[in-house]
């Protein structure tokens, strides 16, 4: 582990701050969810070219969220953002049934990445406001979440359009990162 990352770890170990990574296929709603949590204006969200960072303050806790673009051509770059991640949020567009498998494949590749082994995982089953959205339990089955053994995980149905489910999701994240020491395996 290089000097830079040791420094980052030191910095991160401040008790009231955490680094969260938002991943998922393009069009899943990652940026929209963050915009809604940050300032409520979701009208002007554009597809993410590289990444964008959003700070969210919850109960005096600062979450630095890294929102990475999910287009297929840029997914290989996801791994550049793994360092010192405290929690992983994986977003799925529940109306996009065609890509449930593709999304599951990307997730299982992610979960094998050494740098984020043991990092708590929250799956957001987004766009529940759409009428034919897959319910969260079917997404869980489709993504084969039950096979996950090496970390705590949770799935939460939500909608960035209505805000439903996001509070619950963020509460879960907050709980995990507040006692991050207990969740993480040694790296």
């Amino acid at each position: 582990m290089g000097l830079l990352s040791s420094l980052r770890r030191l910095y991160r170990s401040q008790a009231d701050e955490a680094r969260i990574l938002f991943l998922g296929l393009d069009n899943a709603g990652k940026t929209t969810i963050l915009k809604l949590l940050a300032d409520g204006d979701i009208q002007t969200v554009t597809p993410t070219q590289g990444f964008h960072i959003q700070s969210l303050i919850y109960e005096g806790f600062r979450l630095n969220v890294w929102d990475i673009g999910g287009q297929r051509a840029i997914r290989p770059y996801w791994r550049n953002y793994f360092e010192t991640t405290d929690a992983l949020v994986y977003v799925f567009d529940c109306a996009d049934r065609h890509r449930l498998k593709e999304s599951g494949d990307e997730l299982s590749l992610l979960l094998e990445e050494e740098k984020i082994i043991g990092v708590p995982l929250l799956v957001l089953a987004n766009k529940q406001d759409l009428r034919h959205a897959l319910p969260a339990d079917e997404v869980a089955a489709g993504l084969n979440l039950v096979a996950i053994r090496d970390r705590t995980w949770q799935i939460q149905g939500c909608s960035a359009k209505t805000g439903d489910g996001l509070q619950e999701g963020m509460d879960w994240i907050l709980q995990r990162v507040k006692n991050k020491g207990e969740n993480r395996h040694a790296r």
């Binding site: 393009d26 069009n27 009208q43 002007t44 969200v45 554009t46 597809p47 287009q71 297929r72």
Partner: peptide, 22 residues
């Protein structure tokens, strides 16, 4: 608002869009 195009060939798009078509 947003338009994403994957794995497409020989096709014409007539778009009104608020972000860069991808």
């Amino acid at each position: 608002q947003q338009i994403r195009i994957h794995s497409t060939k020989n096709t014409d798009f007539y778009l009104r869009v608020r972000s860069r078509p991808i």
